[in-house]
């Protein structure tokens, strides 16, 4: 693949269709700048700021944009709230739709056949693949991103974090907890 992709890149460059500096910048953007740390900041703010939380759940796009996370693959953001009775999980069965501005580029498993096929038909089994077991009776709500709406899960704030600052809480927010295939870390998980 390396040779074939590099060959096509040089054809496109030679023909003037792409600017190699722009290519480097695109890669750098998603390798360094944009990633799940953005989403973690959104979640931690919602955990500590009730007004922001309310705004996030009613106008997700605007509330997320207020932190500077905008643009490609995040044009129509909707935030889904987990509760003691409801667990949300996001998939794109048809391709790889994913909220880039808050989570970065999707992991391989998210784009893979096992996840795309089973998330909608057997989400409990999929969660088991992530070592996640939900309490009996908790409803699982799966959101298949078949159009241009991009979903972010707002996980429940872990117990034992009273008085924590947003910056401290960010460390508990994992990428998977914002997709719905994981839960946030607990305080003891990051105790050093």
């Amino acid at each position: 693949m390396q040779l074939r992709v590099r060959a096509l890149e040089s054809i496109l460059t030679e023909k003037g269709y792409v600017d190699p500096k722009a290519l480097d910048l695109l890669i750098e953007t998603y390798e360094v700048k944009v990633g799940p740390h953005n989403g973690a900041r959104v979640v931690a703010k919602a955990w500590t700021d009730p007004e922001y939380r309310k705004w996030l759940l009613t106008e997700g796009g605007a509330a997320i944009a207020s932190l500077g996370y905008i643009g490609r693959q995040g044009e129509n953001m909707v935030v889904l709230e987990n509760t003691p009775k409801l667990h949300n999980m996001v998939v794109c069965t048809l391709c790889s739709c994913y909220p880039w501005p808050v989570l970065g580029l999707p992991p391989v498993w998210y784009k893979s056949a096992p996840y795309r096929s089973q998330a909608v038909s057997n989400p409990r089994k999929v969660l088991a693949d992530f070592q996640v077991t939900l309490p009996e009776g908790m409803e699982i709500r799966v959101w298949d991103s078949t159009a241009e709406i991009r979903y972010l899960v707002l996980p429940m704030r872990p117990a034992g974090t009273d008085g924590w600052s947003a910056e401290q809480l960010e460390r508990l927010v994992t990428r998977d907890s914002m997709i719905g295939t994981g839960l946030p870390l607990r305080p003891q998980d990051i105790a050093s």
């Binding site: 693949m1 992709v5 695109l26 890669i27 390798e31 990633g35 893979s112 056949a113 096992p114």
Partner: peptide, 27 residues
């Protein structure tokens, strides 16, 4: 569909797994 086996998450997965993936993404 049911024939693809389990989901296999990768710990500490990087955004790209090879140089060509970066270039394919960017072009």
């Amino acid at each position: 569909m049911q024939c693809f086996g389990p989901v296999k998450p990768e710990a500490n997965e990087p955004p790209f797994h090879a140089d060509w993936e970066k270039r394919a993404f960017a072009i």
